[in-house]
Design a protein around this nucleic acid. Structure first.
Lengths: 217, 217
DNA sequence: ACAAAAGTGTTTAGATTACACCCATGA
DNA sequence: TCATGGGTGTAATCTAAACACTTTTGT
């Protein structure tokens, strides 16, 4: 029994890299730290794991408490556990990333906390090792985008292929060939073309698409 | 300051999926658990993170204490944190995998602990969620093998391309075309051919190779 | 008429796969 | 000489990348 007792216990936190998409840019939701150390420095959304919750549950809880969002795609990035990473105390942190539709969060909740959506290309400097968390998370996001699955989390229900391409361009931070992108994305058989056109972003008008529920072949 | 204090602390452990290679099979080093709960059940090598060490350091320390091995390739798999995963106490565990040369470990240390090398294809049932850790670790190992880098960790200094191929076949658990494997592996420019032949495993004799220090082009 | 995006098609290069084939040699 | 792996080469297939071209329509 008591064999575990001789070992130390640790604070275990979760830090969330929250990706949103707006104005053809990937943005990160950052918070000014409300307490020392590094009070006022920009920080990822974080919180501590409680007694009876998994790290996944903690990540969801913290995201929901702070942004009002639930049922959000989140995935583990990796653990950061250098003893000195937080100068105040020894905290082991599990980094997560979340993909959200930027227009859907509770803007009042976010504003109250002084949070701000920063373009990924112009981030301020971050506290502790949070920049490293962001870099690792972005790599994971790029991987996920390779499977054509990010539009489902970050775009409205319906979208044109140009809108989807702009999203991918923001994620990879480089331009993609429109024709090749179209063929590749459609080859996944994840999208269903609707009989509705968007005529506001081009003369000719582009069909709207949505993710189809059924599994691809 | 004391803002962290209201949060609970947790036992944080490291569990190591230790991969070795022998007799054309990938093997896992498993330990009979020495204490309750699940005393006697087969378990990954594990241990608790101490006050002033990172999870990487803990993984290395535990591997060295238990097998005598140091300077070993290890990589994080992911965190397992379901509150009920260990029935004795709430333990958050970070899974790692390690690649070792099976003939190099301290056999006495391992024997003392009752540990056993189990072929990956014939594993006994494992305690807690350790089977899940193994599955995730194997996926990571397969990914790493795709870059041609596993021979460096798991084979002797010198090896023939057939030996390297047998290793890859054991990792993917399927046969690979000898000609295609040879071309692909050599195209990485990671290997240097030696002027020594192994004549014991084929009539014709095969050149030995080793990993070259210099970076590939 | 023209610009700009929508949408389709073509060409090339590179990688992957499935084999065919000759070589060397111990039994 | 024959079976076995060593080693090389080739054709078929698939993919990604670059880019030409035609369509549509608001201004």
């Amino acid at each position: 029994m008591g064999l575990y007792k001789k070992h130390p216990k640790h604070y275990v936190a979760v830090d969330c890299v929250i990706f949103g998409y707006k104005d053809e840019e990937i943005r990160l939701l950052l918070y000014p730290r409300g307490f020392e150390p590094s009070k006022g420095g920009w920080s990822l959304l974080g919180g501590f794991i409680q007694e009876r919750e998994s790290s996944d549950q903690a990540a969801w809880r913290i995201l929901k408490q702070t942004t009002g969002l639930k049922d959000i795609f989140m995935e583990q990035v990796q653990v950061f556990s250098e003893p000195g990473r937080d100068p105040e105390a020894r905290v082991i942190s599990i980094a997560y990333y979340a993909l959200i539709r930027i227009d859907r969060h509770d803007k009042n909740l976010v504003r109250e906390n002084g949070a701000h959506w920063w373009p990924i290309t112009k981030l301020p400097s971050l506290v502790f090792d949070h920049k490293e968390m962001v870099d690792k998370a972005l790599l994971k996001l790029q991987q996920k985008a390779g499977y054509g699955l990010v539009g489902k989390e970050m775009l409205p229900e319906m979208f044109t292929l140009m809108q989807l391409r702009k999203l991918h361009e923001a994620i990879y931070q480089k331009e993609l060939d429109p024709g090749n992108f179209r063929k590749k994305i459609l080859s996944f058989n994840l999208l269903k073309r609707l009989n509705i056109k968007n005529s506001s972003e081009s003369r000719k008008g582009a069909y709207y698409y949505q993710f189809s529920d059924k599994k691809p072949n």
